[in-house]
Design a protein around this nucleic acid. Structure first.
Lengths: 202, 202
DNA sequence: ACTGTAGCAATACAAGTGACTTGCAAAAAG
DNA sequence: CTTTTTGCAAGTCACTTGTATTGCTACAGT
């Protein structure tokens, strides 16, 4: 065999190029040739690593999901001591907002995939699983808050988790549209969290 | 001159065909030929009414905005007597959710334009204006609620309006992804409204 | 009756698209 | 050294895209 190259490594490199393009021109707007050019490789080489465009998109989606999960996990584990549910929720939601240029790109790509899922059954099912997992995680944190008496007992963790997700995704969209600054976006999330956790003291 | 035809009427007819396609395949996925076929006319005829694709998309966007505004207005005016701010808010938000097949289509097309706005400066500016107008309307209703003592006085109408919009758009997306049923979506909105208005009694 | 023009159809066109095929260089395996 | 397989480049394929062009028909204005 010739030069032994790390296939996964190459695929990640290509996925990176795809994101950059998808972030500024949309997912469908990125042709294989464009991606290859952005990655600094030839079309032939790209096709050597991805048989079809669908395969490339699929891999990139899988990868972005793992990265996002990793970022959230790292962010939470970086917190000092035993973080409260509220802190965990805040950090998790913050990671889902387009607060810096990097997460702006990530967020745009996520939306591109969201749109794709709107029109295709397969990716929709896949995305649903991811959303449910995230919702369950958030619900778990809310439940923990209820147990610790930090959240009013009449709040249903499942519903609260759904509200949180919808809210953060909505705020995210508004931020990308430059309707809010990143700071305002985070303030809105904090405001909602304050309501969720603040009511218990009264 | 030959047959005198109602230009606006034709353009609306074409816009309708565009929506149907955009709802199921996305906005960029609808080619001029497809739209013409869906509208039951020839490509040549379509080009007679819209010089370029951009012009067609622009007209359709303008039109869908007017329709949405009209639906909301009609829905509110159909309410008996002098509606409370809460009722107005509920009806307005309900109209923004994909609760039936028709609004599902409308919602999908809106998203298609939202995506477009993400990547283009011009439509983004335009969309921002619309969003701000809607936000101001919602904020006005919240302020009215505060005046009438139905909403706690410490709630900032602007922030609450932003939260409502983000929430309804997030829930809308989740509903389109079939993460929620339309009923669950409405229940989530009602839950949030209950919090917004309920706190005053306590 | 003649003419100009709105309404429309058909076709052509250049620029892209994703997928596929071929060919070859390089390096590991024998 | 020879063989074999991987990595990659280049070109080709059929096809779709938005736009431009051409030409015909029917009717209003004169």
């Amino acid at each position: 065999m010739p030069k032994r190259v790390d296939h996964e490594e190459r695929r990640r490199l290509i996925a990176g190029a795809l994101w950059r393009l998808a972030a500024e021109r949309g997912l469908e707007g990125a042709s294989l040739r464009d991606v290859a050019a952005e990655a600094g490789i030839s079309l032939g080489q790209l096709q050597h690593y991805f048989t079809s465009k669908d395969e490339m998109l699929g891999f990139a989606l899988e990868h972005i999901g793992q990265l996002a999960e990793g970022r959230i996990r790292a962010r939470i584990e970086a917190l000092p001591g035993e973080p409260t549910p509220r802190t965990v929720l805040r950090e998790t939601l913050a990671e889902m907002l387009p607060l810096d240029e990097n997460s702006r790109i990530g967020q745009r790509v996520q939306i591109a995939y969201f749109v794709r899922a709107l029109y295709d059954e397969r990716p929709r099912t896949h995305a649903r699983e991811g959303s449910r997992a995230l919702r369950d995680f958030l619900a778990g944190q809310v439940a923990r808050g209820v147990e610790r008496g930090e959240v009013p007992a009449d709040r249903d963790p499942g519903c609260e988790a759904s509200l949180l997700m919808a809210l953060v995704e909505g705020v995210s969209g508004h931020t990308l549209m430059e309707l809010h600054t990143p700071e305002e976006a985070m303030a809105l999330i904090d405001l909602h969290l304050e309501r969720l956790f603040g009511g218990a003291a009264a």
